[in-house]
Simulated assay, not measured.
Amino acid sequence: MTLIKASLKRARHLERLAQWLLLETLLLNQRTHSIKTLKQSLGTSGRLDAEFYQEKYERNEALIQAHHHAHLHELVKIKKSIEPGSGAYKSTGVPFVRVSNLSPLGISPTEVFLSPSQEFEPLYPKEGEVLFSKDGSVGIAYCVPHNLEVVLSGAILRLVIGDKTKINPHYFALVLNSQMTQLQAQRHIIGSVIAHLSVETISHFLIPLLPLNLQEQIANKLQESFNYGQQAKQLLTQAKLEVEEVLRGVKRC
């Protein structure tokens, strides 16, 4: 168990290092309020709610714009999936991944499946794509490590990077999970019952572009973190099997 705890601690440490490496040149210093005239608010954005005009949002976007950056749609092609409805759910077949199965660290096993069909194959996520949730638990990003034979819910977008010499996919996922993008998402979320971000809004997110060598350093830290996390899971599984074997031996005695 000591080795498992050490591996998990190392994984969390490396993930935090990656985040700080991203933020140390983009230090976020926020205040909590601002005053807007009617012309500055409703006249330009069509929004009159106070939440939208909190100064933290404007300072965040100004900070990104002060550095080399791009809009999300300039870096990726956005691909949508399908929403077949609960009537199409099966107990076996092609795994159907919903937002509840998605986290920045991976995709958890699903209990929902769809009947196999060749029509689903173009929907399968490919290595290097970044998945991003737009409904419910908004703003979860995950970089796909290898081709997957799963169908995503319509609430999860596939972001396909056009030029990897501009942005590293692992770095891109970290940016989407970072406070800089989460603040942009919070500002534009709509829906009182189920949170929702429009594809149009997501396409205009501001993405900071650090030098590629720095992006790769961040990506390496993230990969190390993932490897330690996987090692911890394997050790935990092995420990459980060994405990079960011991218990079976005790019962036989």
Rank of each mutant, 00 (worst) to 15 (best):
M1V: 09
M1S: 11
I4K: 07
I4D: 04
K5R: 15
A6D: 14
A6N: 15
S7I: 04
H13Y: 08
H13S: 09
L14C: 05
A18L: 03
L21M: 12
L21F: 00
L23H: 06
E24N: 13
T25K: 15
L26C: 02
L26K: 07
N29K: 14
T32W: 10
I35N: 13
L38D: 12
Q40M: 08
S41M: 04
L42H: 08
G43T: 02
R47D: 02
D49V: 12
E61N: 15
A62E: 09
L63K: 08
L63M: 11
H68E: 12
H69K: 07
H69N: 13
H69P: 14
A70L: 11
H73S: 14
L75E: 12
V76G: 11
V76A: 11
K77Q: 14
K79Q: 13
K79A: 10
I82P: 10
I82L: 10
E83N: 11
P84R: 05
G85I: 02
G85R: 08
S86D: 03
S86H: 04
G87P: 01
K90L: 07
T92F: 07
G93Q: 03
F96S: 00
R98G: 00
R98L: 00
S103L: 09
T110N: 00
T110P: 00
P116C: 07
E121F: 00
P125S: 11
P125G: 04
K126F: 00
E129L: 10
V130I: 12
V130S: 06
F132Y: 13
D135H: 08
D135I: 04
D135F: 00
G136A: 06
I140T: 15
Y142Q: 02
C143G: 04
P145N: 15
E149K: 15
G154L: 01
D163W: 01
D163Y: 01
K164W: 01
T165G: 04
T165V: 03
I167R: 10
N168M: 03
P169H: 02
Q179R: 15
Q182Y: 01
Q182G: 03
L183Y: 02
Q184R: 08
Q184G: 06
A185T: 05
R187E: 01
R187F: 00
R187T: 02
I189M: 05
I189Y: 00
G191T: 02
S192Q: 12
I194Q: 06
A195H: 08
L197N: 07
S198C: 10
T201Q: 06
T201S: 06
S203F: 05
L206Q: 12
Q215W: 06
E216M: 09
I218R: 07
I218F: 05
A219I: 04
A219F: 03
K221Y: 07
E224I: 05
Y228P: 04
Y228Q: 13
G229E: 01
Q238P: 03
V243L: 14
V243K: 15
E244R: 13
E244C: 09
V246G: 09
L247A: 14
L247T: 04
G249R: 14
